[in-house]
Design a protein around this nucleic acid. Structure first.
Lengths: 223, 223
DNA sequence: CATGTTACTATTGTCGACAATAGTAACATG
DNA sequence: CATGTTACTATTGTCGACAATAGTAACATG
């Protein structure tokens, strides 16, 4: 029998951390903004202990920088940050794909196909929002199948930062058709190359690098 | 002109975190041990605030696990942890090598050669301790040359965990000659394949995977 | 004896107060 | 006027106290 984790108690610190994470991801703060303890203390109605705990949590996620004796500041996303993030994600998602191959079951392939259908539907009605979240879920599928917990959690952090970048450049609209075709190919690759993990790795890695290139091109032409 | 970072003030929390990090890495604690606030409060002569801050720091480094309402516990290193760590490190150090290639200067190659000499000297007098620390420095050279700060800091964490593993299995003695030959080859690879970053990547990645295999074999035959 | 309840203890969670510091503004000095 | 000094304010750092909880032991109940 498999027992589910009993739900952990969630303290004030964790709650505040979650609220602040959302606020930052949604762009309520600008890079460089200081998170003032006194102010947030009033806002959330908690004392400074859980607040500072929350700050640590945010630091771990890479959303803020804590400078001793000065304060906690929302990180500024620079182009360099993006350029540093992508190659790492490409390497690690590629690795995840490779490790996922031996764990691919008909079931999991069916789930991927399902997500793909959802993406296609969203693309057809040009619902970028829906497309994007399903696209994230698609990636999460094979990442989870890598069964490497350290890899999964590392990618979670890296991908959150990428998500944040995305929000910062919110006018960026993906070419949904191109992206869909890419993912269709990845799915087919997983079905075809069941005995070539290395090939699946390269496939996913290249996919992310190409998406990155498109993004960079967008930055150049629009900025 | 390049200005050096002015030295950041270092609070009690950071000091305690450093002391505890060393204690854990050196094996003063066993996996599963609880870090009691009251006890450490007496030991370090600080109050609980900086102590809890230190716990967060340790959690970020992956050395402890904080369970709400129960406490902070030293992580237990399992074989699975090691098995999860190595492939990620291999992928990322490989990437670091690839990114380092365009930044390789005669100077930096000379430094690598120097480190290599130090390793050779240590290997000849069978000084495993010295060999190991120089070996770490050798890797750090090309990691730094990747000039990708996110990659550098990610690898720092991953490599610390590996270091910790090593301490846990302290009877593991590397075959210094084999290891030295490997690194000699890596150095030569960097000098020869200056226009083949991909090749350097594969070279370093394979190196770590092979070292990992040796380690696993050791675990099997000795455990 | 099996189970439920209560009381107690050890520990973490949260709070508000005071200390220390960084940054700034006003003033003093030559 | 340029620089040094002092006083003040806003903010983070640290502390000790009380609250809440988890875990255990003792007891009660049928």
């Amino acid at each position: 029998m498999k027992l589910k984790d009993i739900n952990k108690p969630i303290g004030l610190g964790a709650q505040v951390a979650e609220a602040l994470t959302l606020a930052i991801l949604e762009g309520d703060y600008s890079g460089g903004d200081q998170l003032l303890e006194l102010e947030l203390q009033d806002y959330f109605g908690v004392s400074r202990s859980p607040l500072r705990e929350a700050f640590r949590e945010l630091e771990k996620k890479g959303l803020v920088e804590i400078i001793p004796r000065k304060g906690t500041f929302v990180k500024t996303i620079t182009r360099r940050d993006i350029e540093e993030n992508f190659p790492i994600r490409a390497a690690l998602e590629g690795l995840a794909a490779q490790l996922a191959v031996p764990n691919l079951t008909p079931d999991s392939l069916a789930m991927m196909s399902e997500k793909l259908d959802g993406m296609r539907a969203a693309a057809e009605r040009e619902d970028t929002q829906a497309y994007y979240s399903r696209h994230l879920a698609f990636h999460e599928l094979f990442i989870a199948l890598s069964k490497n917990r350290l890899l999964i959690s590392s990618l979670e952090t890296l991908r959150m930062q990428a998500l944040w970048h995305r929000f910062s450049y919110q006018y960026y609209q993906e070419d949904l058709k191109k992206s869909l075709a890419d993912h269709q190919q990845i799915y087919e690759g997983f079905t075809k190359y069941r005995n070539q993990p290395e090939r699946c790795r390269k496939m996913v890695e290249d996919h992310i690098i190409i998406a990155f290139d498109r993004f960079l091109t967008y930055l150049k032409t629009s900025g």
